[in-house]
């Protein structure tokens, strides 16, 4: 089809009988097909064929290479040997796949018939006659089922169908949450006299060993002997820092610190990440997950970020031997907020 002199697209011939122009342009129809070099030149055609063969050959060699690498280059014990094994296996796989893929696409583009074809579309909806028959079929079926005016039967059927999943759902829901004692998340194992010990070595800490400016990751003593140490650890971890007592502007309870040593729950009051970063100069405790920032010198009040509440403070003191111990457990639930937290 000519591109430029097609009478159907020439504006002069688009006028109607009365000389007016149509509302819209008309589709000029499919554009002309442009042949490829290989369609006329047997040499170019042959060259494309050879390229496809070479690509498939690359794939074969790649796969062989991967098998050889598998046999000869074990991951070994060092980072270097692991990396090499991974690299060689992966490159072999890459070549094995890429050869096939590029060969197939190249074949399709350079050697296969590239004349575009047009296919008609039909409306998605079914013909009216078909619809009539479909409705009829349903009517007949409904009639055969004799469900028509039997209200009680319908009700019984719907009710039984609605109820039967319960015998699966009830045991599932009943068990899926363990014992469902959600109040446990309000309690930690900290209590009066629990020693503060180092995480993870569980060594008790002498107040004298805590130098000014240092930060300690602390767990309660006796964590390992529990049934679910991780569950308790997830609530009980504490970040303890020591600063010059004169820098301590406020704390959450009278006398909850010991000589500039303050201990706060390490579980962020936002969504529960461990607030593991301590900035010595500013006394800021920072949560690396969402950047809530708490001021350790000012009762761990929020100075920035998405958290609302201060980190709960663990009241501490020292025992007779000079080891740091809890005066008491936390006075409020630790960690992120939840609906019934204050009940």
């Amino acid at each position: 089809m000519s591109t430029h002199h097609d009478p159907s697209t020439d504006l002069t011939t688009q006028r109607g009988e009365d000389g007016t122009l149509p509302e819209r342009f008309e589709d000029p129809g499919h554009p002309e097909h442009h042949d490829r070099q290989g369609d006329h030149d047997p040499k170019a055609n042959k060259r494309a064929e050879r390229q496809v063969v070479v690509l498939f050959t690359i794939s074969i060699l790649g796969t062989i290479g991967a098998i050889v690498a598998y046999a000869l280059v074990p991951p070994g014990e060092t980072v270097g040997s692991m990396r090499l094994s991974n690299l060689l296996l992966g490159l072999g796989l890459f070549l094995g796949l890429a050869g096939i893929g590029v060969a197939a696409v190249h074949w399709a583009k350079s050697l296969m018939n590239d004349h575009e074809k047009s296919e008609e579309r039909h409306a998605i909806r079914s013909e009216d006659s078909v619809r009539v028959k479909a409705v009829e079929a349903l009517r007949e079926g409904a009639k055969d089922s004799a469900i028509g005016r039997r209200g009680v039967l319908k009700g019984a059927m719907v009710t039984s169908l609605a109820l039967f999943p319960l015998s699966i759902a009830v045991p599932l829901v009943g068990n899926i949450g363990g014992d469902w004692d959600v109040s446990r998340s309000k309690r930690t194992i900290w209590k009066r006299g629990t020693r503060l010990v180092l995480d993870p070595t569980a060594r008790p800490i002498k107040a004298a060993d805590v130098t000014i400016g240092s930060a300690f990751h602390v767990i309660p003593e006796g964590l390992e002997e529990l049934d679910h140490p991780l569950n308790e650890k997830a609530k009980a971890v504490v970040l303890m820092v020591r600063m010059d007592p004169r820098d301590l502007r406020s704390e959450q309870g009278e006398g909850w610190s010991y000589d500039g040593i303050v201990a706060f729950s390490k579980i962020c009051t936002h969504v529960g990440c461990p607030v593991a970063l301590y900035e010595q100069q500013t006394h800021h405790i920072l949560c690396p997950c969402h950047q809530s920032t708490f001021d350790a010198a000012d009762g761990a009040k929020v100075v920035f970020g998405p958290a609302k509440r201060p980190l709960p403070q663990l009241p501490i003191t020292v025992d007779d031997e000079g080891y740091l111990v809890a005066q008491d457990g936390f006075s409020e639930p630790i960690g992120p907020s939840f609906w019934e937290r204050l009940t």
Binding site: N86, L87, L89, G90, L91, L93, F94, L95, L97, A98, I100, G101, V102, A103, A104, V105, W107, A108
Partner: peptide, 15 residues
């Protein structure tokens, strides 16, 4: 063929 190309690219990334 494109399946193999996609797989190949992923394999190269993983390698």
């Amino acid at each position: 063929g494109f399946f193999f190309v996609v797989f190949a690219v992923i394999a190269l990334m993983a390698a």
